[in-house]
Amino acid sequence: MKHYSVPRLMTKLLLPLILLFALYVQFHGDFGPGGGFQAGVIFAAGFILHALIYGLDQTQRLLPPWVLRIGVSLGVLIYASVGVAGMLLGGAYLDYGVLDSHDPMHGQHLGILLVELGVGITVASVMVTIFYSFAGRGR
């Protein structure tokens, strides 16, 4: 893909927009359609596009595999620890109402935000990891 300047330029233009859109979907999921799953997949799709156009090595320099390995487990850890935090604060496991001592609704907001963040991190890292595995295998 080195000699095709149009796709390369378009990727440069589109990539920030794709990543920004993923973040919007991630944090706007409470109000419109969207959430952690979709955001994670869109985020991963951005990096997959980058790898398809600029080559796997460039992308791996941008986002090394060890970061992804951490991301994969970090997401699950965030999700599980939100549940444990609810338990420590006196509620049931994965009960977000107790996260905010004044208003249970704020607690619910916070809990859902954190949980969706965990889901998003895991899904994005998993998708890019799987793509790296398939692409790296061919060499």
Partner: peptide, 10 residues
């Protein structure tokens, strides 16, 4: 109970 409009998310 949750306070967010998107029921699927909640």
């Amino acid at each position: 109970e949750i306070g967010i409009p998107n029921v699927v998310s909640s």
